[in-house]
Design a protein around this nucleic acid. Structure first.
Length: 442
RNA sequence: GUCCCCGUCGUCUAGAGGCCUAGGACAGUGGCUUUUCAAGCCACCAACACGGGUUCGAAUCCCGUCGGGGACGCCA
């Protein structure tokens, strides 16, 4: 029972989660699940100004979105003030700490922890680490206003939560030389530590807003799937040791180990994330995908009420391989909701003016008009047959039609397009295009 | 400045002395396929930072150099 692994993700709720923190959360989660332990959330909400209720709500929302389910109710650090103060008091009594006014002009007395001895610990990722007394110095644990510093609060909370492994960013290695003796002074065995390499930008510096998207919210807003983000981030600094990259959560849990985390910094590869995302979209169950895509249409203000199951069934598969993100969807299907506002001049010239595109359109209008049961099959066949009869290559018929229907020579496959657009609309757009292109033509 | 950490293709990585003429993935390039655009398939391009050791043998161990990063708050 004492051996059960307990880890925590301890963000300060600023309203969004930085990708580096998210990766730490993911590794904590994977480790806990792999070990059959507990993954906990501690909200370090001691900075009153920045930590609004909305910020906390959105933090929880992102955790849920990512599927980072924690096993016990979140711990709010702000509620442990008395416990922190009590710990400082104990350290004072035991002689591990003393009161001092040094380093602050007239602020009053703070409680300072005595750190005048060598400290060493073994990091699971970095190996044995040592710092000699000469490079260490006493540090404040309780401010003169009675509030704990990060170090005290962190350690006391970890003790209270029974944390066995601290898995966090690389930038905390130096702090660990303060935390380890603090644990001991408080009569607790320090947890095991694993410091994850930083995620850096092209220049090797820590990721910042200037580098582009760095917060979970931004990825969600850009149409990335949580599973794709999870997969990509899990692989930041860690790999299963074989050649697998696309992995289910279960596979990652089964394969995860802190020993396999690399100690060197990693650049986040946005292109690879894009690839992961397209792969996840390609493999997503139809029902789930439809649900997400309906959300995209609604967000774009497009009315989906008339679109039945047949419509979605025809749409989903052709659309899948064309989506890198969910945001690619609306531009792809907007044409099924509203006619093109403009016709691409280049495409008009190439497919309508230069060839006999207009005659093709007239012919197609007649052919389509005669199709009784309008399906992707029947409409597609009608198009194909027309091309054959006129001795045209398929493209010579399809491209002018694309321009007429979409305003440009790019679209989903013609049979699907025809079906999804509907017979009446197809005929209307051909007519409309003929008028416009005719007026503008030579 | 002091202390600490890191260094394999452009990027993420596999590699824990011989299996490495260094493997995979993304990106890039070329081709195939094709109903446009995608997707898919195939191929190609491309790396052990440098210099010394140790060893029969080093990407792997040791030392140094160079390069990069981090930490040095009554911030977290």
């Amino acid at each position: 029972m004492a051996d059960v692994v307990r880890v925590r993700f301890a963000p300060s709720p600023t309203g969004d989660i930085h990708i580096g923190n998210l990766r730490a959360a993911i590794h904590n989660f994977l480790f806990a699940r792999h070990e059959g332990g507990k993954f906990l959330l501690r909200i370090e909400d001691t900075d009153k100004e920045r930590n609004t209720p909305q910020a906390i709500a959105s933090l929880l929302d992102y955790m849920a979105w990512m599927g980072l389910d924690f096993d016990e109710p979140p711990v709010y650090q702000s509620k442990s003030l008395a416990m922190h103060q009590e710990a400082a008091e104990r350290l004072l009594k035991s002689g591990h700490a003393y009161r001092s006014t040094k380093g602050a002009e007239g602020k009053g007395e703070a409680v300072v922890f005595r750190l005048n001895f060598d400290v060493s610990y073994t990091d699971i990722v970095k190996g044995p680490l040592t710092k000699s007394a000469a490079d260490l110095k006493d540090f404040v644990i309780l401010r003169s206003d009675g509030t704990p510093t990060f170090h005290l609060a962190n350690v006391v909370d970890d003790i209270a939560m029974g944390i066995t492994h601290v898995i966090r960013g690389d930038d905390h290695v130096e702090n660990t030389f303060k935390h380890v003796p603090l644990f001991r002074a408080l009569g607790a065995e320090p947890p095991k530590y694993a410091h994850l390499p930083q995620i850096v930008n092209d220049k090797g510096k820590p990721l910042s807003k200037r580098d582009g998207d760095v917060n979970v919210g931004e990825f969600r807003a850009k149409g990335y799937l949580p599973d794709a983000l999870f997969n990509a981030l899990a692989l930041c600094g860690w790999s299963p040791g074989d050649d697998r990259e696309m992995m289910t959560r279960e596979e990652m849990i089964a394969a995860f180990s802190l020993e396999r985390v690399r100690p060197s910094p990693a650049r986040f590869d946005y292109r690879k994330l894009e690839w992961f995302n397209s792969q996840y979209i390609a493999r997503m169950p139809a029902g789930k995908l439809r649900e997400l895509l309906e959300g995209e249409l609604a967000a774009a203000g497009l009315d989906t009420s008339g679109r039945d199951a047949r419509w979605w069934d025809a749409l989903l598969d052709p659309v899948r391989p064309r989506l890198k993100t969910l945001k690619d969807f609306v531009p792809l299907v907007r044409t099924f909701f509203e006619p093109p506002e403009t016709y691409d001049p280049k495409d008009v010239r190439k497919h309508l003016d230069e060839g006999n595109g207009r005659r093709v359109l007239e012919g197609l209008a007649a052919v389509f008009g005669a199709v009784a049961d309008w399906t992707a099959q029947s409409a597609g066949t009608a198009l194909q047959k027309y091309a054959e009869e006129k001795g045209l290559k398929f493209g010579d018929a399809a491209q002018p039609l694309r321009v007429a229907l979409n305003g440009r020579a790019v679209s989903l496959p013609m049979d699907v397009t025809l079906f999804l657009m509907g017979k009446d609309e197809v005929l209307a757009r051909i007519r409309r295009c003929l008028q416009r292109a005719g007026a503008a033509g030579t």
